[in-house]
């Protein structure tokens, strides 16, 4: 079963992710520092992260992650209330940037499935 790290400081979304991504092993982190620390121990197959986090932003987390050779190729999906332009998403090497206000659960499942399939 693929392991996904979900980084979102809004705990209210945790239940939502648990139900929508129920076919995967999920680990939740409420800040980027904790997530990066855990990545040192266990490499995730995919990262789903918000951008506006308490502490370092999601972009800082992506930069940090990409700076480690063993984590550089972990696919990442941004799920945020902030609109992220495609060129910005591309700069950080993310598979997709989804808007929390317009995405759908099925859409999220599809993007996650696609990212994991491409990474395999």
């Amino acid at each position: 079963m693929a392991r996904i790290f979900v980084i979102d400081d809004d705990r209210a979304w945790e239940d939502y992710y648990r139900r929508v991504l129920r076919d995967f092993e999920l680990d939740f982190f409420h800040d980027g520092v904790a997530a990066i620390a855990e990545m040192d121990e266990r490499r995730p197959d995919l990262i789903v992260l918000d951008i506006l986090l308490i502490g370092p932003t999601g972009f800082a987390v992506l930069n940090e992650m990409r700076s480690y050779s063993e984590l550089a190729d972990v696919p990442a999906i941004i799920v945020s209330s902030v609109e992220i332009r495609d060129e910005i998403a591309a700069q950080y090497g993310v598979v997709a940037a989804l808007d929390k206000s317009t995405m759908t659960p099925r859409g999220l499942q599809k993007v996650v499935d696609g990212a994991l399939k491409n990474a395999a």
Binding site: Y16, R19, V20, S81, K100, S101, T104, P105
Partner: peptide, 18 residues
């Protein structure tokens, strides 16, 4: 206000999964 509204929408859409 966008944050709770986005969550409400996602939750409503996710009902079909239940």
């Amino acid at each position: 206000l966008k944050a709770p509204l986005s969550l409400v929408r996602q939750l409503a859409l996710s009902l079909e999964l239940e």
